[in-house]
Design a protein around this nucleic acid. Structure first.
Length: 936
RNA sequence: UGCGAGAUAGCUCAGCUGGUAAGAGCAUCUGAUUUAGAAUCAGAGGGUCGCCGGUUCAAAUCCGGUUCCUGCAACCA
């Protein structure tokens, strides 16, 4: 009810060009105008200011694949909102953006569309920059870094050189993952289930000489997450990936005198080792194999090599393998044991050879039973009869006492790992005393393979000398030649102009043609953001001294054992190579203590989930029954995915269900089905008695992808609803860490919310009959909302923060109608709403902020603080229960004592009749919320 | 198979350390407005909190079991 109250005069519209004409919410005009205004005023420029507390907020930089998709919006806008909150809280916030611009898709585009990778990449970057701008994020564009730019990859090469000179980068021969389709090798971390994690292309194992980084040197340090505020799943994934296990290395000798070293976590079971198994590719297989077994061994090796990792894993768990004909000597008891090869032993783990203890290892047991090999129990199970070998159906892996184990007989064995297990400790001591082995730690993680046989990457700045030596190129950077042709292979390998160079002695030499893994570029990009133009080093120590380390990092969890592991390794290596020496000096000069600041890149990490496309499929149902007025009354319902038409009265997919009414797509159209309570519902996948509510109706969620046609284009949504609405909705519709299916219809609600805020902000509030209680109620609501929103936003709980703002919206909409609060309280409520919403919906809030007469941007305002006294409830409704059932409610003071609460409850009107039924046995008082009276 | 998360309205979710009558947005329905629809406004319906058992004066919440779903790792010696 707008009117001309004098109270409204303190809110003079100060932007006549947008408000006088009409009070309609024009998202497009508002957003474009404010984006331009912010840029012109430079309010998002972040500069070193030692008088202010810094906050480095980072979000994973995108690969310029073409268009910004929903995932980018989902990942970045909450990160932006969080950075804005921190800024309003008084921190000097750096929130930069850039592009991870090297990579295979650019080369594919070159082959398919005959466009140079650089051109393709930079065109995409241009497009994505403008799309990023449409988000209205507070990116500081003057700090942008693009990894494929020579001013950037100069320093990527420089890092490689440092790594080489510090013996962290090395060239070595190893079994590596080779993708024939991609024509390159891949790091272990980038292979999932035998396929390239990006493209799903299969890989095979190949022995090749490649460039590696000695990541395993840092394995132990990488297991230490102390001081890091990271999600547990990520820490677990990295820990599992690194895969530290404690045990011993034991040396076996073959009859020919060769040594076979094995790693085992159970050296205590050595006396039960009755055979050995080598990986098919193990180098000693040749010399071990006897003439009689050579054909079989060769056949097995060839078959194993021809299989992709994927095929190996897809096979059943049935063990395969062949005997080499060779024997080794068990060093603890000098027994002669056969040596087999089998593909369940992996060359890439441990030493590629195992001692097999079939009695106490499930895999070895299965193998022994399959091939009739000897099984020798050496543990007497705790509290059981001794193991009877022929009767065993499984390996025994539990605790007990060592038997048939010579010097360690009688020692207890427990479930503990490593030396904490008495039997393992005893075995290690014996091995070391007898020179047969030593305590050892094995890691599953391997060194980081960084060579790629591709063109569009940072060149590895190395030169192959004529004399066979390798050395760093004379001049950095080694620049990628631009004038090249693409046919699917790297054009570098036959580019004479590129290849020909000279070594440090002036002799003709050949350049390395491999480029670096693009994860190398992204392992240090947040340093480049600090000073993207700096040319005396990878980053300016003065900037680094202030901004480092990154305070909060946001991005996808899929990088758990790739980027996030490499980045941690990289920083530790940089620290050890002295790259931070100048930064440290600068820190000390500015009075900042540098200790411990270069051990980890990202102090806090938060992962967003994924926005999925909603595609819908329901159970396929077979329904029998009777027709009644065009509707089928079911006598039975059965789920059968393979059922064909004709198998029942109605066969089809369940599209919709409301209570017991089904809508089934039965080929000819939708059929209505009513399922009476007595009709049996059979769902094979769910055991027991099923009912109609367990039927799955048409809804399936999955990744958005072009081929599935379920991609939602953020540009269109921004056009229709505005960036503020899209941002708000992305933060409201999902639990950020979890993500979920995109529902096209839901966004209208978020748009309505923004429009309601618009209405509140543009309404003329005129106080009528001011009530003190109403005023206090509104202020309480406001201060409760501040507390809730503050807590939620700091914690990335966007959905509940928006929900809290929506309820404040509801309260304020009521207030606008009742007009019973003091004008000051209304103004406080409105200003608070705008400030709290500003990080989420930056444009509309700034517009309204100016509309209510403020001159400065809402984004430069201090974050509201909750006044606990105002937020506290002073009068509350106390529940009076009798025997746990609510019988009455009474208004009491929030600070009521237990005695008063009890007395009030016993005096409550509606409980009297219950009190008469029996004596009061007990009174449980929880002032001020509840009193429970137990009677009878 | 192991580890983790989860199961609350038709959908997506909130409900913190047990305590009022279980909430929000969307969807649905009714009414107003409209030639009609959309939009808007007013209002309504809809939940055995997966299932079984236990602890308690009191359980969606804690404990045990069970089913289902989902994420990650998967022959790691």
């Amino acid at each position: 009810m707008p009117n001309q109250s004098p109270d409204a005069r303190h809110r003079l519209p100060c932007r006549p060009h947008s408000f006088e004409a009409e009070m309609e919410y024009q998202h497009k005009e508002i957003e474009q105008r404010w984006q331009a205004a912010w840029e012109e005023a430079g309010i998002y420029r972040s500069k070193v200011d030692w008088s202010k507390q810094k906050y480095y907020a980072l979000t994973m930089l995108p690969y310029p694949s073409g268009d910004l998709h929903m995932g980018h919006w989902y990942a970045m806008t909450p990160s932006d909102a969080r950075a804005r909150v921190m800024r309003m809280k008084g921190f000097n916030v750096l929130f930069p953006m850039g592009f991870d611009a090297f990579g295979l898709p650019a080369e594919n585009a070159a082959v398919q569309r005959n466009i140079h990778p650089a051109k393709w990449t930079y065109e995409n970057i241009d497009r994505m920059r403008s799309q990023l701008r449409s988000m209205g994020a507070m990116f500081d564009w003057e700090r942008e870094a693009v990894s494929c730019d020579p001013t950037y990859y100069t320093w990527t090469e420089w890092f490689f050189k440092q790594m080489y000179e510090h013996q962290i980068a090395y060239r070595g021969e190893a079994m590596v993952n080779w993708s024939d389709t991609l024509q390159t090798v891949l790091a272990n971390e980038q292979v999932i289930d035998g396929k390239d994690e990006r493209t799903g292309q299969p890989v095979i194992q190949k022995l090749m000489e490649q460039w590696f980084f000695a990541l395993t040197n840092y394995a132990d340090e990488l297991l230490d997450f102390s001081g890091l505020d990271w999600p547990d799943p990520i820490k677990t994934m990295q820990t599992n990936w690194i895969g530290r296990s404690e045990g011993a290395e034991v040396t076996f000798k073959t009859e020919a005198g060769d040594e076979i070293v094995v790693f085992t976590t159970r050296p205590d079971t050595l006396w039960g080792a009755t055979f050995m198994v080598l990986a098919p590719e193990h180098p000693l297989v040749d010399s071990l194999t006897s003439a009689a077994h050579r054909d079989a061994v060769e056949g097995y090796r060839v078959a194993a090599a021809a299989q992709s990792e994927l095929e190996r894993m897809e096979e059943s768990r049935e063990k395969t393998g062949v005997f080499t004909g060779g024997y080794a000597i068990n060093p603890v008891n000098n027994e002669r044991i056969p040596v087999w090869i089998a593909d369940y032993v992996l060359l890439s783990y441990g030493t590629g050879a195992i001692m097999a203890v079939p009695a106490h290892d499930e895999r070895d047991f299965a193998f022994a039973r399959q091939f009739g090999l000897h099984i020798a129990p050496v543990i007497h199970p705790a509290g059981q009869e001794p193991l009877d070998e022929p009767a065993m159906t499984d390996a025994y892996v539990g605790p007990g006492v060592m038997v048939n184990s010579g010097p360690i007989d009688g020692v207890a064995t427990t479930d503990a790992k490593g030396r904490a297990n008495p039997s393992v400790a005893a075995a290690i001591d014996w091995l070391e005393a007898n020179n047969a082995g030593k305590e050892a730690i094995n890691y599953r993680v391997r060194d980081w393979l960084i060579s790629r046989q591709r063109y569009w990457g940072s060149p590895i700045p190395m030169v192959h000398r004529k004399d066979g030596g390798v050395e760093v190129a004379q001049e950095l950077p080694v620049v990628l030649p631009e004038d090249v042709e693409f046919d699917g292979r790297s054009p570098l390998v036959d580019d004479e102009d590129f290849l020909a160079t000279v070594d440090s002695d002036g002799n003709p030499a050949r350049r390395e043609t491999d480029t670096m893994d693009t994860f190398m570029c992204s392992s240090w990009y947040w340093f480049r953001y600090l000073s993207p133009q700096f040319d005396a080093g990878p980053f300016d120590p003065e900037e680094a001294a202030y901004w480092l380390p990154v305070d909060v990092y946001t991005g996808g969890a899929e990088h758990a054992v790739m980027h996030l592991l490499y980045a941690r390794f990289f920083v530790k290596a940089m620290r050890d190579m002295g790259v931070f020496a100048d930064t440290e000096k600068a820190m000390i000069e500015h009075g900042r203590d540098p200790s411990g600041l270069f051990d980890e890149p990202f102090l806090m990490l938060r992962n967003q989930g994924q926005v999925l496309g909603a595609e819908r499929f329901g159970d396929r149902l077979v329904i029998d029954g009777e027709w009644d007025h065009g509707r089928l009354i079911a006598s039975s319902v059965r789920v059968d995915d393979d059922a064909e038409t004709g198998a029942g009265e109605v066969v089809g997919e369940l599209m919709r269900r409301t209570e017991n009414l089904l809508q089934v797509e039965a080929g000819s159209g939708l059929v209505g089905v009513e399922v009476p309570a007595e009709a049996p519902v059979d769902i094979p996948a769910i055991a027991g008695v099923n009912d109609v509510t367990q039927l799955k109706h048409h809804l399936e969620i999955q990744r958005m992808s072009k081929s599935k046609g379920n991609v939602v284009n953020p540009d269109e949504l921004v056009e229709r609803f505005g960036a503020d609405t899209v941002r708000t909705h992305l933060m409201f519709a999902f639990e950020w860490q979890k993500g979920g299916p995109w529902d096209e219809r839901g966004i209208a609600g978020s748009r309505r919310f923004i429009e309601d805020v618009w209405k509140l902000g543009t309404a003329e509030y005129a106080a009528g009959d001011v009530s003190e209680k109403a005023t206090a109620d509104l202020r309480r609501k406001v201060h409760q909302t501040i507390a809730k929103v503050d807590e939620d936003m700091v914690d990335f709980k966007w959905n509940t923060a928006v929900a809290a703002l929506m309820t404040l919206r509801n309260t304020m909409a009521d207030t606008l109608r009742t007009a019973d609060v003091a004008a000051e309280a209304w103004t406080e409520a409105l200003e608070t709403l705008l400030k709290l919403l500003a990080p989420i919906a930056p444009h509309v809030t700034d517009e309204l902020w100016h509309h209510i007469g403020q001159a400065e941007s809402v984004h430069l305002q201090p974050w509201p603080e909750s006044d606990a006294a105002l937020a506290a409830e002073n009068v509350v409704t106390m529940v009076v229960q009798v025997n746990g059932k609510v019988r009455d409610r009474i208004e009491v003071s929030a600070s009521i004592t237990e005695e008063d609460a009890t007395a009030a409850a016993l005096a409550a009107e509606k409980v009297q009749s219950w009190l008469e039924q029996g004596g009061v046995r007990k009174v449980i008082a929880r002032p001020p919320k509840l009193v429970n009276i137990v009677v009878g």
